[in-house]
């Protein structure tokens, strides 16, 4: 039950984009079309789950036992950068169709602060292994939800009469604000 609550909270209440403001760059950059938003969301969810597992192992099996936790930032960023490379090579070998779908989005993920944020937040909250995995997947799905919703709104927005200076990023941020406001409604769900 507790794990289920955590999963739901990671998707809706503490949504990575709308609550923690992590992954804003892809959220604004790749949210013009629903198709690409779905691919980006899938790629992020995939990498987030793996990152959660690997960063937990590094943190609990290497950094903490040897009292190296001050190296956390350096260790995490290097692990994430190499992990994304590995995942990319692996997918290209195993499943070319999936590689076609995720293709260009995978390298972009290295600089996505949501991934680094996940590794840091999970270690900050002292999650157990299982909790970390659930949290990673839930956060990734939350990101997917936010970016797909945003893409849906932006496809409609193309037809709207937006004041010239607000076109592009300006209106996207204001829409995100209204979405964040709607999402705060979920916060009553979990306490």
């Amino acid at each position: 039950m507790n794990l289920l609550m955590m999963f739901v909270a990671a998707i809706f209440v503490q949504n990575y984009v709308l609550y923690y403001f992590l992954g804003i760059c892809p959220f604004l950059g790749v949210s013009k079309k629903i198709d690409s938003a779905v691919s980006m969301g899938m790629a992020v969810t995939f990498v987030m789950t793996i990152t959660a597992v690997v960063s937990w192992m590094i943190n609990h099996w290497i950094l903490i036992p040897y009292k190296l936790d001050y190296l956390q930032i350096v260790a995490f960023i290097l692990v994430i950068a190499s992990l994304v490379q590995l995942v990319e090579m692996f997918i290209r070998k195993i499943s070319p169709p999936l590689y076609q779908a995720l293709g260009i989005y995978l390298p972009l993920i290295t600089t996505n602060c949501a991934i680094m944020g996940l590794a840091l937040l999970a270690s900050l909250k002292n999650f157990s292994f299982l909790e970390t995995v659930i949290y990673g997947t839930g956060s990734g799905l939350g990101f997917t939800l936010a970016i797909v919703l945003m893409a849906g709104i932006r496809e409609q927005l193309d037809l709207a009469d937006v004041p010239e200076p607000l076109k592009g990023a300006g209106i996207a941020l204001i829409v995100a604000g209204i979405m964040a406001l709607a999402f705060t409604g979920f916060s009553g769900m979990i306490n």
Binding site: E164, G170, I171, I174, G177, L181
Partner: peptide
Amino acid sequence: IIMILPAGAFITLGILLGIALLVEQ
């Protein structure tokens, strides 16, 4: 209260971006 919430951050920054573009134009 909304200004302290995440929503306030998005909306304020969106409007500021618009103003910055307008000044530039």
